[in-house]
Amino acid sequence: MALELRRVKNTFDMLFGKDVEVTDNTPLDITPKSVIGTFKNGEENICGAIIFDNSLACFSGAALSMIPMGAAEDCIATGEISSAIMDNVNEVFNVSVGFFSDGTTPDMRLDKLHVNEESVPENVTEIISNGSGLHFQANIQGYGKGSASVFML
């Protein structure tokens, strides 16, 4: 897969307007608190997926529009992501389509977010369980860290 940590860092730095430390990590498992984004190409086929753990979803959603850190911590503690933070998480995944782009997938776009693991399409769970892809931890300055895995199908 052509995606490198540097591209993830550059995208997150741009997105949050602050320094984001991005480091290698082990593959994520889907849990009931994971947020999974699936991406489609111009032919309406699913061609990519990104998993955020609950911490990265809450911290990134809060950081995007500078929602106070306490609100993100509340979401992490309860496991319930507030609607304001969830709206922002959707935007974070929308912009993260750039992880996949190398100029050959111009029509790729976010299809939908899955916060219920049972709604994740079967072909996506198969690819995710194989563990191939890019796996990283991101530490958003002023908020905190969480983990993600990116899969090109």
Binding site: V95, V97, S101, G103
Partner: peptide
């Protein structure tokens, strides 16, 4: 845009774009 291929740059120029900024940018 994330679409910074040579082909797309040429198409943009031919259609009348003045510049192209590729995401992610600083």
């Amino acid at each position: 845009t994330t679409e910074g291929s040579e082909k797309m740059r040429n198409l943009a120029n031919d259609t009348g774009a003045n510049f192209m900024i590729t995401k992610p940018f600083t």
